[in-house]
Design a protein around this nucleic acid. Sequence first.
RNA 1: GCGGGCGUGGUGGAAUUGGUAGACACGCUAGACUUAGGAUCUAGUGCCGAGAGGUGUGGGAGUUCGACUCUCCCCGCCCGCACCA
Length: 954
Amino acid sequence: MSKYHFNEIERKWQKYWAENKTFAADNRSEKPKYYVLDMFPYPSGVGLHVGHPLGYIASDIYARYMRHRGYNVLHPMGYDSFGLPAEQYAIQTGQHPAKTTEENIARYREQLDKIGFSFDWDREVRTSDPEYYRWTQWIFLQLFDSWYDKEADKARSIEELRIIFSSEGNSNVKAASDDDVPVFTAQEWLDFDKVAKEEILLKYRLTYLADTEVNWCAQLGTVLANDEIVNGVSERGGYPVVRKKMKQWIMRISAYAQRLLDDLNKIDWPLPLKESQTNWIGRSEGAEVTFNLLDSGHKINVFTTRPDTIFGVSFMVLAPEHDLVLKITTEAQKQEVRNYIDATAKRSERDRMADVKNITGVFTGAYAIHPFTGENIPVWIGDYVLAGYGTGAVMSVPAGDRRDYDFAKQFNLPVPNIFEGIDDAELPFAAKSDIRLENSDFLNGLEYQKAVAIVIQKLEEKGIGRGKISFRMRDAVFSRQRYWGEPFPIYYQDGMPQAISEKYLPLRLPEVEKYLPTEEGEPPLGRADIWAWDTEKNEVVSNNAIDNITVFPLELNTMPGWAGSSWYFFRYMEEKENRAKYFASKGALDYWQDVDLYIGGSEHATGHLLYSRFWVKFLFDRNLVPVDEPFKKLINQGMILGESAFIYRVEGEEKKKFVSAGRAEAYNTHPLHVNVDFVDGHNQLNIKALVDSGGEFADATFELENGEIYVGKSETFKVSREVEKMSKSKFNVVNPDAICDQYGADTLRMYEMFLGPLEQAKPWNTAGITGVHGFLKKLWKLYHSGENETFFVVEKTADTSKEGMKILHKTIKKVQEDIDGFSFNTSVSTFMIAVNELTAAGCYAREILEPLLILISPYAPHIAEELWEKLGHTESISKAAFPIFDEKYLVENEKNYPISFNGKMRFNLNLPASLSKEEIEAAVMSHDKTARYLEGASPKKIIVVPGKIVNIVI
RNA sequence: GCGGGCGUGGUGGAAUUGGUAGACACGCUAGACUUAGGAUCUAGUGCCGAGAGGUGUGGGAGUUCGACUCUCCCCGCCCGCACCA
């Protein structure tokens, strides 16, 4: 071999790694562990584009680096293989989602393999594999078998709750539960029948059933998510959508709200991500206050964050859906209130939120009594009050709240001022600081904090309120009316859900002949013929056998996508051989603990990353895992954007006519995306390829510009460049395979890192790739000489010239800093500089070129392996640990080969101001801080500033 | 509106963390080699200026011997949440 034949080299080493299981992690290693994880992909039919591997490359570099540093690294990969696209495809084609998924996974694997990742494929997981989802079902059962004890602040077994109930009833139990739990004594508990007991326990379980409104679209035969609905009709097809109550499985994540919030302090995550979660959890401190209603005997509870402003209350507003509305409305107002409720019910929650400007509301005719002044306060309903937050009712303080103020103005309600020194014209005044209250009885002259404390105390004394913490986060709906997901290990007896014992898992997904919901609106599993549970045989049997004595109907819903992804990181810890016995064994869990580094996109901030924290905390509570946070450090990789290309179609022409970008302004045109594959680096379009690709371009005419068609880079001519998210419909997807074929995986890896800081969004442009490719060629050359690099010239003898060693150690130091700080883009530059300098210095010493390979190998592992082998090593470079990254080694080398700053260094020395010029020079020369760098040379310039600071330019 | 982040050449981005701003790469310019090149090599490239020199990190002030870096105000862009009481 002579020249740098990357394709050959890469194929060779990928094969070698696979055959030798170079990257197998060891569960019984003496080395310290390090766990590097990527967010596993959903294997879609489109395959990978260049954006996907960005995070994988970064984590792979880190994993390889940590191996070199002597860690036992776990770096696995798998597939989040339950999901919607495969199901949609199945609905359209009748092809089983398992088959589609299998094919897509094969394609992904092929693409991933080409890039040379150091994954331990023996630990692969697939969430749709029964051997995997068996344990997802198992965790569901653990949740079903648990309740949340607020006093111990942890989840406990339902069995313990039964014991408490039968010995002391539930009046002392402080649990996260449904609101409507009746209070009972031990005796009452014992007297309840089985169904009644089950019903009560369900209100305590960490996963429970509840009626929830869903968006049902009869024409599409499916349930839609909020964002799939536009103006009350389905986004696809424009069919009507109705809100329908359905029994759904819910996860009591709200029990963990405070811990999920607090523990954000324990983990090293990007700030925006933590903020997203903080916002999502939405903790607010305040008070709950009860208002008695005039005459009717009803009470309204409100939640407020500003109990201090209670003397500014001039009216109350209930959400239109509030239970009390119809009970308290007077006869005279009934019709108007009814109309209003109907009108709001028709609008989706989203529309209501979007329409902030129109202030609407209706007076109920009822009055509440102010708890302190005894004044009568009118009670209104209005859709600015949300049923789902707080108590669904507010005490309105127009002087202190924008929304209350606007409502008051709209309906001519009074705006009593309660702020000292604030003019009526300055209202509403919402700031909490630098203000004292007035017209507020016992709160007059007090500041926010004191006033809040006092008012809460008064409320508690009078028994009409208390301090309260409210969370915005609601419990998470856990069932989906879909086919391609985990079946619930649940059957129904007397209408109550019963767990299937974990001994009989997995409960396999049944076969159905169609993947659509049934005509009755049941989920697709309603179509399965063999989908009933025989409690005697403990197996799935035909529906015909259902007798509700020993054979019962099974749950028809399936679990959502986030079920399988909420615990997969534990599954990787377990070796294949033991996976049948444990979701992950104690030994494996104790060894690997948690994920040290997690890399993935920020789009999962309030989904996957919140749910997995919740599950882990739960598993921790039940002593099933040793950690209560799964991901110690997390990095979000930025998106790689595609640069789209446009061609301009002339409007109003009979025949389709497209013009080159330079001509487009002369006509009335509209832009059309063209496939970036047909565009070269100079924006020239390959017309033949475009026409051959068919479609609308097949019979078109083209107006050329200098004999070519140039594509535009934006839709309008005002913008010179436009980058968009890569998507099939925009024809701007760049496939990594093509890059691997043309330049090699090592080039792709380095280039993706070189593109910019890992966490930033950046456009993909191929122009720069030649620079990186050129670097790898130069690297190759550094180890060879002669025409076509015929000879391998690394000398076996030592030539530790100071120059070369300095370059090497500067590079080691910089690269190590870069990797530790996840600045992979700068270390690519560092390599380029090093290779340029070594080439210029003519260094061929083994002592220099060997460590250089170790440095580069995480980034460009294939070329590193090849050159490593040429150096005469028989062991793979990828697996080995090297001392060059050790602290000791670093210090030692800094002493022997001080890092050269090429005359660009300045320092400060604190010297007495009184010294003469000569004395200063002498002091500088002998100072141990400078001596190392000066190496006997005299400084070019010494600047003495009045005071005692000296600048030395070397 | 609230919370957070960021502004450096034509471009992506560096800056030893307060010490010669613009490393490295792309692009561009000139030259060499070549049948040819969108290959390779050499030199140049922040801006103004022929030059010496001046000027320069969104704008303005401040701290400092010294500021891209720290502080304050303003301007612009991006992200998250958003009728959350």
